[in-house]
Design a protein around this nucleic acid. Structure first.
Length: 867
RNA sequence: GGGCGGUUAGCUCAGUUGGUAGAGCGUCUGCCUUACACGCAGAAUGUCGGGAGUUCGAGCCUCUCACCGCCCACCA
């Protein structure tokens, strides 16, 4: 073995081997249980980013359950991502000076198909670099023919049930994509703007002032609204105003939606271009005027000066016109939030348009119930409230998009006006037999198809074996930003069509931020490519990083140092293995542990191993991997490598029965650590596991370790901890004085069981590099170390520095400690109210401290010996 | 406007039921000790955001204020 671990070759080799041997496919269950995760399908056009690296958490769970003996299945696939893909292809066409309109729908569809075929599943290929053990033979794509059929089935079914309807409503319109988008796809951002105060002349005299951030929409006003209780305007309600510029007469209405405090307390009402106004309009049966065409330009032939202008230009122009008419009272700076398209960033225009909607109230009911009764659980738990809040206030879902890419809405209208949803492309109208049919031009919201993902990927609506065996799934892991867009929708769709939750546990992992706390973004240059991290530090280190930070529920500032530390950790494990493998013949079988031959150190490390196994397993069960990787890192590095392996080195050299025992224990401990670590760091653990004596053909199928509580000896743990404290204290003194020769003569006395025995003294001698044979020669200058019930006298070289000063300092520290404890114990409130165990512990601490103080005093008395 | 999360060592973050504050990185010192210098050993470093309260005892519970971030809402 080389002195360094090189992840590159190892990772590639093992991934190919696992894949070829079919280890990622579900295998027969040893527990009778299945464990399934549906992988959130990345966009087919997307690049791998740190968000995808977070899918490591899913792989950790899958690998863990595989080791537990469950039939584990991770279903991968990709999403067609309508808007995103369309943007890519339109740019390609634009480069050639063409457009989708120019080539026509058929050619466009061919182009899309070709793109899908050539893009393939590149992003899933990249995921392999991270070691993901998904069953790649089951890759699904939301454009697969069977998937398309399933979507169609769902649409027709919902339509028949009256849960899908078409109707004009005010919608969020993206002028660039020329499509409606749902409320969830609008991103609001604070922007500096102006608040314009307009004077509208009231019929019969006087003016009423309204405040608006969008003066250009005044040409579409169909009313002015005031609050019904507003005394200022009481008399004006029911009267009319004449709009400047267009000279249209519109009523003054009273509506509760008006905020008396804001602006002038009177508001212009533009039902065609404002959500609130639209609702006011509904209540007062106001006409709706559309003043924008679908590309976001003004569309008002009556006012030629404005016609065809973009909104910002129209705004400037109309302000001039208003000023000219004396209708502009004032302009104030005003900061407000403006909606932008999630995908392309264009400013969203509310417009009235006929769209397809899903009636949400009936679907939300069951989805609320499952979260309330815990059939659906959230990790961290606080997301449950977020989910419920949204579900309880849900509004109908706009599922139609005016795009050229996506699943067409399967509704055909005949010449007689019969609109019907068809499972198969119809030849004639179902209702009248008319053969002149036209299909609705709209496509479905991408999230409509995504909402069916976990069950359609298993074959639904067909009654498949997969569906029966693997559905519902267990865990859904994702980022919080698609909790509503995706997670919530899967829940109500599954409940409606399969009468079950799609998964029992929702794991919301943290979002990776740039080191400065901003969002990671390619355009800002703050993005981090996981493939770069894999290249530099290995997939295992990258995975360990995501496992460490991913499940705490906190957002994560990217920190490369931590990944680096896990790379070193892999190297540490490699070298620990190297040490042990070097003592073994090639291809050695596992050495059975002879329990009768175990030394205290062996019992100690086995006890610690058991405790670590228990806590790691508990962390996994809570789906909190941070404490798991942290605990394993610490145990493997500090306790096993730094302490235990150092402790047994003399035995490993001895070449007798003690060598065999030490090796058997060390190998067992290391092999167990590898198994505990495997779900998080699969590559290095497989590589090292194969090099150590082992049973089985892959660590992927090795059993998950169980704790052995019978071996956890409390007193021994305490004694070992004490011994290590003594070691540190001796090393400290040796470093600060000149007592650095390799084997320092010393004598030790202790009231601790372990340190009173030769074996304990041997450990102390090994770790602190002491010559502990018998007594120090009479009169030899010495340095004394006192730790609790143990005293070590170090023989000093003639020029050694005296340490009375240090002992004095320690005595003072002890006295302060004694004082503090006594104060506590002298408080009758404490002794009477605190639990007996706590009081007892304080008493014991006091006794210990007093003994140590006595010993220090005694030593300080031996001034002669202390130089 | 409502809600949620955060504020702990120079930096990035842990801290399970309230009972003597931790890690990684960085810093300082000494070591090429035959698994690892991608290492070993030792050391330093915290009014746990401010204030008040509950309690024998608060990083942890309650209230309040400040700042940072996110989500939701019909923010003219």
């Amino acid at each position: 073995m080389d002195t360094r671990y090189d992840p590159k070759t190892v990772e590639q080799r093992w991934y190919d081997t696992w894949d070829q041997r079919g280890y990622f496919k579900p295998r027969e269950s040893l527990t009778g249980k299945t464990f399934t995760i549906s992988m959130p399908p990345p966009n087919i056009t997307g690049d791998l980013h740190m968000g995808h690296a977070m899918y490591t958490l899913q792989d950790v769970l899958i690998r863990w359950h595989r080791m537990l003996g469950d039939t584990a299945l991770w279903v991968p696939g990709t999403d067609h991502a309508a808007i995103a893909t369309q943007n890519v292809l339109e740019k390609q066409l634009a480069k050639k000076g063409s457009s989708k309109e120019a080539i026509g729908r058929e050619a466009w569809d061919r182009m899309v198909q070709e793109w899908y075929d050539t893009t393939g599943h590149t992003i899933l290929q990249q995921m392999r670099r991270l070691g993901f053990s998904a069953d790649w033979s089951r890759i699904r794509f939301t454009m697969d023919p069977t998937y398309v059929e399933a979507i169609r089935y769902v649409f027709v079914q919902l339509w028949k049930e009256g849960l899908i309807y078409r109707g004009p409503r005010i919608v969020n319109w993206c002028p660039r994509d020329q499509s409606a988008i749902s409320d969830l796809e609008v991103q609001y951002e604070e922007e500096d703007g102006h608040l314009y105060y307009l004077d509208y002349p009231v019929e019969g005299g006087g003016v009423i002032s309204v405040a608006t951030a969008r003066p250009e929409t005044m040409v579409g006003d169909t009313a002015v609204a005031v609050h019904p209780d507003d005394w200022r305007y009481k008399d004006l309600i029911g009267k009319s105003v004449v709009l400047p510029i267009v000279h249209r007469r519109v009523p003054i209405v009273a509506d509760e939606a008006v905020d008396q405090e804001f602006g002038t307390g009177a508001v212009k009402v533009t039902p065609g271009h404002d959500t609130t106004d639209y609702e006011i309009g509904e209540r007062h049966h106001l006409p709706i005027l559309s003043i924008l065409s679908l590309d976001g330009r003004m569309n008002i032939p009556e006012v030629p000066q404005l016609h065809g202008l973009k909104v910002p230009e129209a705004r400037d122009r109309i302000v001039e016109m208003l000023r000219a008419e004396g209708a502009l009272q004032k302009i104030e700076p005003y900061r407000h939030s403006v909606g932008h398209c999630d995908r392309c960033g264009a400013v969203i225009e509310p417009i009235v348009s006929a769209q397809w909607w899903v009636r949400m109230k009936p679907l939300a009911g069951p989805a609320i119930a499952v979260a309330e009764n815990d059939d659906l659980r959230f990790h961290p738990e606080r997301w449950r409230e977020q989910y419920l809040r949204w579900m309880r206030n849900i509004r109908d879902w706009n599922i139609s998009r005016q795009l050229w890419l996506g699943h067409r809405i399967p509704v055909w209208t005949c010449a007689n006006g019969h609109a019907v949803a068809y499972l198969k492309d119809p030849k004639e109208c179902e209702q009248c037999g008319n053969r002149e049919l036209t299909q609705d031009p709209d496509v479905l919201d991408t999230w409509f198809s995504s909402s069916l993902w976990p069950f359609v990927t298993l074959g639904w609506p067909a009654d498949t074996d997969d569906l029966r065996r693997y559905y519902p799934t267990q865990v859904l892991d994702t980022a919080r930003d698609i909790l509503y867009l995706w997670v919530a929708r899967m829940v109500f769709m599954s409940l409606h069509f399969l009468n079950t939750v799609p998964f029992s546990d929702v794991l919301i992992h943290g979002t990776v931020l740039a080191p400065d706390g901003r969002r990671m973004s390619k355009s800002l240059g703050t993005g981090v490519d996981p493939l770069d991290m894999i290249e530099q530090y290995g997939a295992d280190a990258t995975r360990a990083w995501t496992a460490y930070f991913g499940t705490g529920g906190q957002d994560i500032r990217f920190s490369e140092e931590k990944i680096e530390s896990y790379r070193r950790f892999a190297n540490k494990l490699w070298n620990a293995t190297r040490l042990l493998v070097g003592k073994l013949p090639e291809g050695a079988a596992p050495i059975p542990i002879d329990e009768s031959a175990l030394e205290p150190a062996d019992l100690w490390i086995l006890g610690r191993l058991s405790a670590v196994t228990r806590s790691v397993t508990a962390s996994f069960e809570r789906m909190e991997f941070g404490p798991a990787i942290d605990g394993l890192f610490d145990f493997a590095w500090k306790e096993v490598a730094d302490d235990y392996l150092e402790l047994i080195k003399p035995r490993l050299q001895a070449g007798d029965a003690s060598t065999v025992t030490a090796l058997s224990v060390a190998i067992h401990v290391l092999e167990t650590i590898l198994r505990l670590l495997h779900p998080i760091m699969p590559f290095v653990t497989e590589e090292l596991w194969q090099r150590l004596p082992h049973e089985g053909e892959t660590i992927m199928y090795a059993p998950w370790p169980l704790p052995d509580e019978t071996i956890e000896d409390r007193e021994l743990m305490d004694d070992m901890a004490h011994l290590l404290d003594v070691v540190r204290a001796v090393r400290n003194v040796r470093q600060s004085s000149d007592t650095k020769s390799r084997q320092q003569p010393a004598e030790a006395t202790s009231q601790r069981a372990l340190l009173s025995e030769p074996v304990g003294r041997r450990y102390l001698a090994t770790l602190a590099q002491l010559e502990l044979n018998g007594k120090l020669p009479e009169g030899m200058p010495q340095s004394v170390v006192v730790v609790g019930q143990t005293t070590v006298r170090l023989g000093l070289p003639a020029d050694g520095a005296p340490d009375a000063q240090r002992l004095k300092g320690e005595l003072e520290k002890k006295l302060r400690e004694i004082e503090l404890i006594q104060e506590k114990l002298n408080n009758p409130e404490f002794t009477s109210r605190a639990p007996a165990a706590v009081v007892e512990r304080e008493r014991a601490r006091l006794a210990q401290a007093q003994k140590a103080a006595d010993r220090l005093r005694g030593l300080l008395g031996e001034t002669g010996k202390l130089g």
